[in-house]
Amino acid sequence: MSEPFLIGDAMTGGYGRGADILHGCTIAVERGQIAVIVGPNGAGKSTAMKAVFGMLDLRQGAVRLDGEDITALTPQARVAKGMGFVPQTHNIFTSMSVEENLEMGAFLRQDDFRGTMEQVYDLFPILREKRHQAAGELSGGQRQQVAVGRSLMTKPKVLMLDEPTAGVSPIVMDELFDRIIEVARTGISILMVEQNARQALEIADKGYVLVQGANAFTGTGQDLLADDDVRRSFLGG
């Protein structure tokens, strides 16, 4: 069996010298697939994502990307390796225009990035329309599109999204999920933490239910949606 494209393998760790939040947690995503991390508040979902991105030190376990051990790399070095991360909040430059935000996403690139910007505008047409507007003036859903678009400007192999639909309307949530599916179809792996568990599992190739920093259930999105224990405990019946 070949290893998943990205894996945080048996991760144990926390922030600084504090107590461990993750306890042997494993999260993985295949190339061009969508993996979703769900679970109750305080389950360690965002912490697991940050651990994969190198934002906290692991006491045990490893992170590997395309077979390479990247456990010791900084987040910046992981971006250079092809990982993009969109935090839940403070994920855009509010005083800059939409286009300037996208240009900031290309800061590591030495090549001509205008083609990538066109791809982002094709994916999010509203951003093309508002490209000269200050990003801080946009709606919540449009800001999230800017944040995702800026991360796509790095030409990532893996796009990590922390609660991408937090605070947006159900219509905007559906639209964002549709765009996420489109991104995955281009061959980019998607790893995301999501509070809207049922909707997220519907689009997930793989789902991870975390409880107290450990894997409680793992399976395809459809398997987890059909699991009575998962439905009763985490999806409201």
Score class of each variant (00 low, 15 high):
Ser97Gly: 13
Tyr121Trp: 11
Leu102His: 02
Arg128His: 07
Gln119Asp: 15
Val98Pro: 15
Ile92His: 11
Asp112Arg: 03
His90Gln: 14
Ala106Asp: 03
Ser97Gln: 10
Glu103Thr: 03
Leu123Asn: 03
Asp122Arg: 14
Ile126Gly: 00
Phe107Glu: 13
Thr116Gln: 15
Leu123Thr: 10
Ala135Ser: 15
Gly84Trp: 02
Glu129Lys: 09
Asn101Lys: 05
Phe113Ser: 12
Glu118Cys: 01
Gln88Thr: 05
Phe93Lys: 06
Phe85Val: 12
Met96Ser: 05
Glu99Thr: 07
Met96Arg: 09
Phe113Cys: 15
Gly140Thr: 07
Glu103Ala: 14
Leu108Trp: 01
Leu123Cys: 04
Arg114Gln: 12
Asp122Val: 04
Gln110Met: 09
Met117Thr: 06
Ala106Val: 01
Phe85Thr: 02
Thr116Pro: 00
Gly105Gln: 06
Gly115Gln: 14
Leu138His: 09
Gly136Lys: 03
Glu99Tyr: 10
Ala134Asp: 01
Phe107Thr: 10
Phe124Glu: 04
Leu108Asn: 07
Gln88Glu: 15
Val86Ala: 10
Asn91Thr: 11
Ala134Ser: 06
Gly105Ile: 02
Gly115His: 13
Gly84Gln: 10
Glu99Leu: 13
Leu108Lys: 05
Asp122Cys: 11
Glu137Ile: 02
His90Phe: 04
Glu118Val: 06
Glu118Asn: 09
Met117Asp: 08
Phe113Gly: 03
Glu100Gly: 06
Glu99Asp: 15
His132Tyr: 05
Ala135Ile: 09
Met96His: 03
Arg109His: 08
Val86Ser: 11
Gly136His: 01
Phe107Met: 14
Leu108Gly: 06
Thr89His: 11
Leu138Val: 08
Asn91Trp: 02
Phe85Glu: 02
Glu99Lys: 14
Phe85Ser: 06
Ser139Glu: 07
Gly115Ile: 02
Arg114Phe: 02
Gln88Arg: 09
Gly140Val: 05
Asp122Ser: 14
Ala135Arg: 08
Glu99His: 13
Glu100Phe: 03
Thr94Asn: 12
Ile126Glu: 07
Phe93Cys: 14
Arg131Met: 15
Leu102Tyr: 03
Thr94Gly: 12
Pro125Gln: 10
Arg109Val: 02
Pro87Ile: 01
Asn101Trp: 00
Arg128Val: 00
Pro87Glu: 12
Phe93Leu: 12
Thr89Asn: 13
Gly136Trp: 00
Gly115Asn: 10
Glu100Met: 08
Arg128Leu: 06
Ala106Arg: 02
Phe124Leu: 08
Gln110Asp: 12
Arg114Ile: 05
Met104Val: 14
Met83Arg: 04
Glu103Pro: 00
Thr89Val: 01
Asn101Gln: 07
Phe93Ser: 09
His132Gly: 09
Met83His: 02
Lys130Val: 06
Tyr121His: 03
Gln88Asp: 14
His90Thr: 08
Gly140Arg: 08
Lys130Asn: 04
Thr94Trp: 04
Met96Thr: 00
Gly84Met: 07
Arg109Glu: 05
Phe85His: 13
Gln119Phe: 00
Phe113Asp: 08
Ala106Lys: 04
Pro125Ala: 14
Val98Ile: 13
Arg128Pro: 00
Ala135Gln: 12
Glu137Phe: 02
Tyr121Cys: 02
Ala106Trp: 01
Leu108Tyr: 11
Asp112Asn: 15
Glu129Arg: 10
Lys130Pro: 01
Val86Glu: 10
Gln110Phe: 01
